[in-house]
Design a binder for these strands. Structure first.
Lengths: 197, 197
DNA sequence: GGCCAAGTAGTCAAATTGGAATAGTCTCTA
DNA sequence: TAGAGACTATTCCAATTTGACTACTTGGCC
């Protein structure tokens, strides 16, 4: 799941440098344990991997108090990759984890870009709902009845998501949130994590 | 994810013995590629693991045509474990994969049991929605605004699922589907996969 | 009869995830 | 002041997942 990658990169970017435990606590404080069910091992692995891939840099820090730790900092490539992941997660349907992670990192995008991606999602969801309704007309007889009924649930989820995405797009158009190209965004503020969004 | 385990055990049980490729194709024919995004490697691994755990037995089959293959058959313990997994998946919220897999294997349960589990889910979803509405009154100020708005989406999904679960419970009460304790169920029919549900 | 495409069946190394285990610090409190 | 418990920070390895790869059979089709 690249949701882990996105979240980890995102937190490091937002805090302008972080070590593993910090990423973990930040996620926790966002109430993220419930959706992003990320275990410590995954966080540290993702950080190391991202460093190996040149998306982050590693700086050993002598443990002034407590055990020693490794500070990670964002690189330009890391930022580009992360922005791409957010854009992708907003568009791609059928991937709840990526959507959640992308929304958490929404202010990484410029306002117009975010709106475009969300609108793309809206279009895809609408197309899928139409497609499903069509497929419904002559159902595959190999599929057991109760499995077919499951489709109702998916359609319901798709409709919920559709409405929500539309309203998000609207809120964004009306200037909600501090986006990357707004004054006071994470790009210009010293400690974005403490920023009032 | 134990959804893989459940699906694999379930297909082997339903077909009264199956090899890896068969499990794979069966899942595909159910249109399961979309929700259960299970790759071949995972299926073969799950089968081996289940056999090692005594949930399935392995029978080497000389390849009469094509490469040789391994036939897996269900054991009593395997059936018990699987039924437990289905019950659990129906009750447990916040685990879409398990819910999907459990619904696919719904007819493994007796009618009254299935109704009880679905009703339990309904109760849990209702409690969660109430809890969320309460938490909404004094939100944690550490959480960025856009992350808080995400909660709306989850609530929407929960409401969708709630309505769907209620209607499923109703359908079950009205005698829909062929459940484990109904005449002609997978327990008594020779080749349940070819059964008209 | 040779060859290609599609279908059948499964293996394997590499990547990722899970979560217990380790280890040091700080803070009470009896 | 010793010891219990909470917090900080990370490591480690087993379990699982991914998806590319192997290999064999069948059935056309030229």
């Amino acid at each position: 799941m690249s949701a882990t990658k996105l979240l980890v990169l995102g937190i490091v970017h937002l805090s302008g440098g972080a070590h593993g435990y910090q990423v973990r606590s930040e996620l926790q404080s966002w109430g993220a344990e419930s959706w992003a069910k990320i275990k410590p091992g995954s966080i540290y692995h993702a950080l190391k991997k991202a460093a190996a891939d040149g998306l982050l840099t590693e700086h050993a820090e002598p443990g002034n108090s407590g055990p020693e730790r490794v500070l990670y900092r964002a690189t330009a490539r890391g930022r580009d990759e992360m922005v791409e992941l957010v854009r992708d997660g907003l568009r791609r349907t059928h991937d709840a984890d990526m959507l959640n992670a992308s929304i958490a990192m929404l202010p990484m995008l410029t306002r117009t870009d975010a709106i475009a991606q969300v609108n793309e999602r809206v279009a895809r969801l609408e197309a899928e709902l139409v497609g499903q309704a069509k497929g419904w007309e002559n159902p595959n007889p190999d599929i057991p009845e109760h499995v077919r009924d499951q489709a109702e649930l998916w359609a319901g989820h798709a409709r919920t998501e559709l409405e929500w995405a539309k309203s998000l797009s609207k809120r964004l158009s009306e200037g909600a949130y501090t986006m990357a190209d707004d004054p006071g965004s994470w790009r210009t503020v010293h400690d974005p994590l403490k920023m009032r969004f």
